[in-house]
Design a protein around this nucleic acid. Structure first.
Lengths: 173, 173
DNA sequence: GCTGAAACCATTATAAG
DNA sequence: CTTATAATGGTTTCAGC
């Protein structure tokens, strides 16, 4: 976090848009030499800022199943176990854990598979409640906030986010 | 979906692991020539199977804010509007829409920003209820299911997934 | 979908700021 | 310590088959 300058962010932004973009192309855009780009990228990989170079795939075109969002409300202290159980599954690609002991997983499953995962793979004694939602759309817009594009308007109305999650009911108009 | 053979899937799998892997390297692994890999990748891009070549970034290292998962329960018919409002925001990178009119967004926000998004950016008359959860962990394991690795055990206990989502309460032991 | 050739690109070593 | 330059070795693409 501390060790990234604007050049790093610019490189990340360009690679985010197209991870196969040639380094000499990037060098020209950013205003440094190609070896510098190479060095910076290597460093960003070592720092773990870049997890991997990968693809944004349309999963509906490569697998038979339907996309689902599974929301698990877990017993306290079991979150990391459940992540370790879910993440390696072939049908699961994204797993989020939140401070209120929920785990949300995005998966592509056959009709019978979701049931098998919930009953066989997971230790259900750790699950307080769960919810399976059929995905109808999903958008991924990876963005790199450039250092100076920080549009932080000073604002004293800072809304604190309680770790347990804020839940607010609004009248149906 | 119909037009992908095992070679395509193998190429996708290798590129998913490392999107910068050289095409002649891939060609060797897959058993075709480099130009064939190039042609296939181009076709997969045109088909929309490959959305883009991109990076898996550790967002906590490149931005000041905290990661949150925002769950919006919307009024019917407003889902696509809300996606269009959320997706372009700099702080939002992932948006999921489910059949039961929920939109789940993953964002990295400053303390004041989440409030601003909810009140200024969104048309709150479209939101029935919302929920902001603090992210503590997130895993992305992009997987390409190879054509023959389809481990579908025949199973007649097919659990249908209602479009409205299944919600089941389990006793707290 | 393959082959071969030409254009292009990444990386290394080296030198300079 | 960081960046630029130049050369090498590797990669991608384009014709032609």
């Amino acid at each position: 976090m501390v060790e990234l300058d604007e050049t790093d962010l610019h490189i990340l932004q360009l690679l985010t848009e197209n991870a196969r973009r040639p380094y000499n192309d990037i060098a020209e855009q950013v205003g440094v030499s190609p070896p510098t780009v190479s060095d910076r990228v290597e460093r960003l990989e070592e720092l773990g800022v870049i997890g991997r170079f990968t693809l944004d795939l349309d999963r509906s075109q490569i697998s038979e199943g339907v996309g689902v969002l599974v929301d698990l409300h877990l017993r306290p202290g079991t979150v990391h176990d459940v992540i370790d159980q879910l993440a390696p599954l072939e049908s699961v690609d994204h797993v989020y854990a939140t401070a209120d002991a929920h785990v949300v997983a995005r998966a592509t499953v056959d009709e019978c598979e979701i049931h098998r995962i919930l009953t066989d793979t997971l230790d259900l004694s750790q699950v307080v409640e769960y919810d399976v939602r059929l995905l109808i759309d999903s958008v991924w817009e990876p963005k790199v906030r450039s250092a100076n594009a920080d549009d932080q308007t000073t604002h004293d109305d800072t809304a604190a986010i309680p770790a347990g999650g804020a839940s607010i009911e609004i009248d149906g108009q």
